[in-house]
Write a protein that binds this DNA or RNA. Structure first.
Length: 347
DNA sequence: CGCGTTTGACCTGCGC
DNA sequence: GCGCAGGTCAAACGCG
C-alpha cells in the first residue's frame, strides 16, 4: 500500500510544476477508473537501441507477435468479454517475425477438446483477481524491437482479449522458482502500436536465477528464427525490472526511473515510455515520447534511494517494488551477478 | 520426461 | 442480483 502510493506520489511530484507531490496521505490515491487526469505528468523516454530494460527472453516472440494481432478489429458485442466459443487467434506465420514458430501454432484447429473441470464449482479456489491486496503492480512499456525477455523464467498461463485494446493480453507466471508468485502480463499497447505494456504483479520470492535452467522454453527460444534478430540483445543486454541493467546509460522506463534520475537519462533525453499503475492496475499515467529532465527525477532519486534505506518516512519506492525483485534501490548496483541458482521449473 | 504453450472453461471483482 | 470483463486453471499438446 505504501509503495503504491509512493509511486503515485512520485508521479505526482513529477508533475513538479503542478507541485503537490506526496504532500500528504495522498487522499485521492486511487482515482476512480479512468480518472488518470490527476497525473498527466510523465516523462517518457526513448530507449537506447541497445538498452532494453524489458526484454523477455523467456517469452517466445511468437507469443508476443501473437498479441500484435488485433484480436477484435471490430468488437463483436455478442461475443465480447470472453473468448468462449471464439475462434482462436490465427497467427499468420508468414506475416512478420512470428513466422516459423515451432510449436503449437501449427497445431490443428483443435477439435474442442473435451474438458471436464470436475470439482470446480464449490471449491474455494485461491484464484484471485488483481485487487488491492495484491502487491503493487508496475507497468512498463517496451518497444517491440526490444523483444521481450528477462532473466526470469516466465511461464505463460493464459491469454485474454482485452476489451478496448483489441489485442491479446498474455499472462505469465514466474517459473524460475516454485512457489514464486511473481506474475506479469503483456499487452500490446493500443495507443502505441509496437509498444508492449508489461505489468508486473507480486514479487519474486527468490533471487534472480543465474542462468536459465529451464530446458524447454529456453532452448527452444534460442532457436527461434527471430531469436537471431534479438540474439545479440538477449544475450548481451537483457535488462528488466527484475534484472537490473548492467550499466544504464541512457534510457529508462518506469522501472529504471531510478537510473534515469541518477545517471540514466540525461536531461532532455528521450526515454521510452513511463507508465505506472496503482495497485488496482489502473494506469496512473503514461507519457510517450516525452522527455526526461533532471528536475523530474530529482525527487525520484531521493525517493528511490532514500526509501531504500528504510527511511520509513514516507514516500519511497526504494524497497519492495515487486518488479524489481523487491528492492529497487539496490537495483543499479546488484546486477544479475548473483547466482542463487534457479530452480527453474517444477519437479 | 520435463517444461512451455495453447486455449476453453471457470472464477471473481465490479459496475449497473 | 445480474452480467460483463479480467484473471486463472488445467488438459492437451509440442518440442528438446
Amino acid at each position: 500500500m505504501d509503495a503504491d502510493w509512493d509511486l503515485f506520489a512520485v508521479v505526482r511530484s513529477c508533475k513538479s510544476t503542478v507541485n503537490k507531490a506526496a504532500s500528504s496521505g495522498e487522499p485521492s490515491n486511487r482515482p476512480s477508473k479512468g480518472n488518470t487526469s490527476g497525473c498527466n505528468c510523465l516523462a517518457s523516454l526513448k530507449l537506447e537501441q541497445n538498452y532494453d530494460p524489458f526484454t523477455f527472453r523467456s517469452m517466445s516472440r511468437a507469443s508476443l507477435e501473437d498479441s500484435r494481432q488485433p484480436v477484435l478489429k471490430q468488437p463483436d458485442p455478442t461475443t465480447m468479454g470472453t473468448d468462449r466459443g471464439k475462434n482462436p487467434i490465427i497467427l499468420s506465420p508468414g506475416g512478420g517475425g512470428a513466422s516459423g514458430q515451432h510449436q503449437q501454432q501449427q497445431r490443428p484447429p483443435n477439435p474442442k477438446r473435451p474438458r471436464q473441470r470436475v470439482q470446480q464449482r464449490g471449491v474455494p479456489k485461491t484464484r484471485r483477481r488483481r485487487n488491492k491486496n495484491m502487491n503493487r503492480t508496475v507497468v512498463s512499456h517496451v518497444t517491440d524491437e526490444n523483444s521481450c525477455s528477462d532473466q526470469w523464467t516466465w511461464r505463460k498461463y493464459g491469454r485474454k482479449t482485452i476489451k478496448g485494446t483489441s489485442y491479446l493480453r498474455h499472462y505469465y507466471k514466474c517459473s524460475s522458482s516454485i512457489g514464486c508468485s511473481a506474475r506479469k502480463h503483456v499487452t500490446l499497447s493500443n495507443s502505441e502500436p509496437g509498444t508492449y505494456i508489461v505489468t508486473y504483479t507480486d514479487d519474486h520470492t527468490h533471487s534472480m536465477p543465474d542462468s536459465r535452467k529451464s530446458r524447454a522454453g529456453g532452448s527452444r527460444r534460442n532457436k527461434l528464427p527471430n531469436a537471431d534478430n534479438n540474439a545479440s540483445s538477449s544475450s548481451s543486454s537483457f535488462i528488466s525490472p527484475t534484472a537490473p541493467p548492467p550499466a544504464p546509460e541512457v534510457g529508462a522506463t518506469a522501472t529504471n526511473v531510478q537510473n534515469a534520475g541518477d545517471n540514466g537519462a540525461k536531461e532532455g533525453e528521450n526515454v521510452n515510455i513511463v507508465a505506472l499503475e496503482n495497485d488496482d492496475g489502473e494506469d496512473i499515467f503514461m507519457i510517450p515520447n516525452a522527455q526526461v529532465y533532471d528536475y523530474l527525477f530529482e525527487g525520484l532519486g531521493e525517493l528511490v534511494h532514500g526509501a531504500g534505506s528504510g527511511s520509513g518516512s514516507g514516500i519511497g519506492l526504494g524497497h519492495n517494488w515487486p518488479a524489481f525483485g523487491g528492492n529497487l534501490s539496490s537495483w543499479g548496483s546488484s546486477m544479475s551477478g548473483s547466482s542463487a541458482g534457479s530452480t527453474a521449473g517444477r519437479g
